[in-house]
Design a binder for these strands. Structure first.
Lengths: 215, 215
DNA sequence: ATTCAATGTATGAGCCTCTCACATCACTCA
DNA sequence: TGAGTGATGTGAGAGGCTCATACATTGAAT
């Protein structure tokens, strides 16, 4: 009964919760969500199999925390990508492409962010998506016809969200070939589709200016 | 010693494979993919825990078979829903709404049909989606600008697919509230978004005729 | 009738999740 | 300064699951 922590200097880890989240993301990148196990995460963090349960109620809670971290990183990427985009139309269209490119980089990360079971049971994941909506809403209002109610702007964002997620899903499951090879092409296609969507929600009579379809 | 099959008349089941697929769908409807286990499926089918492995290589293979069954049922629904839709534009837009409504009915079924891990490893699932593409391609060709290459028609279908899947994901994870309560509304919104998408891909100069946005 | 391939059973190894009693340590407050 | 205390980690283990292997049963073909 000499619980000498091996592979570590101190008995206490310091910040096990954060370390576990990080390790979880690494594991998922390697073997996917299905291959992930709390036991393996504990092993890699040089901690006993029971330790993670001090910080996370169950396997799903750890996965949700990791997903939240992914969401945080995504927002940083998003803010970066739209920094110098002038028109609201193009800003909305750009997000779709950015999202696809981010998906290629974070792969497994998005797998958990969008895992059906997780999102249904962990509301904080949906809340994190809602923050994106807040960031984009002003652009959506600019685009939508002046007479239309606010709901239309929100509906447009939902549609864009749906579109982007759908593309990401298809990309990650390899529908278009090896994800790494086709990211850029898919991103461009997503952007174009988003442009079409945005154009469809804006009034043709308004001072839109951009043609809204090809390239 | 005495392998007397209990709960069954004969030692052999008759059509265990099909029964397992059916049971799998039921279990998933009740407790979701995450709650599903081969052992439970065997139990409900009154068969030993090892029996399923005579018919399916592993857990995922059984899930994939169940997903394929879902895909088959979906196609039936689809064919039904577009039977009396006249214009190609509306046919394409209708599919999106149909898909959303079907999602509400088959819930868990769609969870496996679109489970990231499964689709990545079981190509037959992607093939089954491709059949839908074949069914819709003619309509897509009608809609797309005459000068555009065939790729554009395919791209439009990919975009529609992405859009519909994205809406379904959001619906099933409860983003809009209890799925049962909001199906119809979401279906309408998906249809509208699809209409916008279709309009964006078609030439404004063509003999399209339909306005392509609000209701 | 006999044999064979297919299908089901029994058993078990190995892994995982999650729990519980106990060990250890950082921190607070007298 | 020096207990006391709560948070964090350990070890052991119960219960469940996946999947492999050896054996039993049975319908069909020879």
């Amino acid at each position: 009964m000499a619980p000498t922590p091996k592979g570590r200097a101190t008995y206490h880890h310091g910040d096990l919760a954060a370390a576990l989240v990080q390790t979880t993301l690494e594991i998922i990148d390697e073997v996917g969500v299905r291959g992930f196990s709390v036991a393996e995460a504990a092993r890699r963090t040089c901690v006993s199999p029971g330790a993670p349960y001090r910080h996370f109620a169950d396997r799903d809670a750890l996965l949700a925390a990791a997903a939240l971290e992914v969401s945080r990183r995504l927002r940083a990427i998003y803010l970066d990508s739209v920094a110098d985009v002038g028109s609201a139309q193009e800003r909305l269209a750009t997000v779709a492409g950015t999202f696809v490119r981010a998906a290629a980089r974070y792969r497994g990360g998005l797998d958990i962010l969008f895992a059906p079971g997780l999102r249904a049971t962990h509301p904080e994941l949906r809340d994190s998506s809602r923050e994106f909506v807040d960031l984009l809403l002003p652009s959506a209002f600019e685009v939508v016809a002046p007479g239309e109610a606010a709901v239309t702007a929100v509906a447009l964002l939902d549609a864009l969200h749906a579109l982007a997620r759908g593309y990401v899903a298809q990309l990650l499951e390899g529908k278009f070939g090896d994800p790494d090879d086709v990211v850029e092409e898919v991103a461009i296609r997503a952007t174009r589709a988003a442009r079409a969507l945005v154009a469809g929600y804006g009034v043709p009579s308004g001072p839109v200016g951009e043609e809204g379809r090809d390239r």
